[in-house]
Nucleic acid binder design. Structure first.
Lengths: 207, 207
DNA sequence: CTTCGATTTGACCACCCGGTAAAATTCACG
DNA sequence: CGTGAATTTTACCGGGTGGTCAAATCGAAG
């Protein structure tokens, strides 16, 4: 069946293979653009065999989304309220940029989902994601209010980190076309450090 | 036929109605998720009648893309090499944010297209868009090198403007969920001015 | 009011896609 | 090996989708 804990090694292997193939296909074609045939083919299985492991296309997509959440939220989770504020935020940004670099499919899958109005991810966004963001926004607000970083809008600061980093995964084609095919990440990392650094700077003393 | 210049007023009116409906549907469901039936229904026409004005789904999507390009590139086009650098860049950012606010469907249509690897927009990106970006990047580079703004990477600065502003249209659902339903744009505008201002600032003199 | 091209419609089709049923095969274990 | 459960395959649907076609209707110019 499609029970959560895989009972046999065959099930463990095949579920993993399918999830990998589905990530690939969902990320590159979107939910409606992806076909079970193509996912099955990518996974090296027949379509009915795929449906033996996942009840439906919906269920498969949902399973991926669940698997992804931990990976996706890890960088923000790791932001330490006890750490040095500027370093914590820069580190968060770097971790998110690494995510774009090393997990672009996950980023695009998410982007696809949100773009369509989050028909399947809405519960996760309203629950887990929102509460984590609110929690960390409070941390950032405290840092800002005690003058350890410049004055920032915590929520919009987080949005900015998302936007700036995920852009390199989601709009990869555009970025690479404009950059002429060279790997954009080294320059992107230096640039984003520069941007975040400037934003977190304490205000210049009035002359 | 599907000739470019509409011959009759009926043609002009119906083509416009169809393009409007198609923008709505393509933006909210993606290319493959959109159906001709739904577009026709939204436009108040029958499907064969729609296909009387546009040869195919592809052709319709392409027509929208072409129509969109001017609107889409206008803010960057308006960036004036003779203007005051800081003001020009801030103005560009504001115009792009207005685009997200007032034309979110256009933004999402583009995002969808790029996410899927730009199967239909590639020529436009490689041509018109790239050359415009390169041209304006050179302008920004000159401003930076003559010390009229802080040291910036022109291409990545432009990417950042895109990322930061389009995020509010493309990830609207997520943003509004986290912000609790209040209009995010006023705060976003203030925040982005703050961010861009900080980035363009000339470096603090070494003590 | 006629006429002819422009527009609209209804009927239709071939294909694709998600999903099912049941038989066939493979696997683990005694 | 034998056996029952787990896995895989073959054959098949029903609905939806992009697109066609010929007939019907409309509209403007004479």
């Amino acid at each position: 069946m499609t029970d959560n804990p895989p009972r046999t090694r065959i099930q463990a292997r095949n579920r993993a293979t399918i999830l990998e193939a589905a990530l690939e296909v969902f990320a590159s074609r979107g939910f409606r653009g992806a076909t079970l045939d193509r996912i099955a083919q990518t996974a090296g299985l027949s379509k009915p065999n795929l449906l033996y492991y996942f009840r439906s296309k919906e269920a498969l997509h949902l399973a991926i989304l669940e698997d992804l959440m931990d990976l996706w939220l890890a960088p923000l989770r790791e932001m330490d309220p006890e750490g040095e504020p500027r370093e914590e935020i820069l580190r968060y940004m770097r971790r998110k940029l690494d995510m774009s670099r090393h997990h672009p499919r996950e980023s695009r899958l998410f982007a696809n989902e949100i773009l369509q109005g989050a028909p399947r991810a809405r519960p996760v966004i309203e629950g887990e994601l929102k509460s984590l963001v609110d929690e960390k926004a409070a941390v950032i607000a405290a840092w800002s209010e005690t003058g350890r970083i410049g004055p920032v809008d915590p929520h919009h600061l987080i949005f900015s980190v998302w936007a700036l980093t995920q852009h390199y995964a989601d709009f990869d084609v555009q970025v690479r076309t404009i950059m002429g095919g060279t790997d954009p990440y080294p320059a992107a990392e230096a640039w984003l450090e520069r941007v975040m650094g400037a934003v977190l700077e304490l205000p210049r003393a009035a002359p």
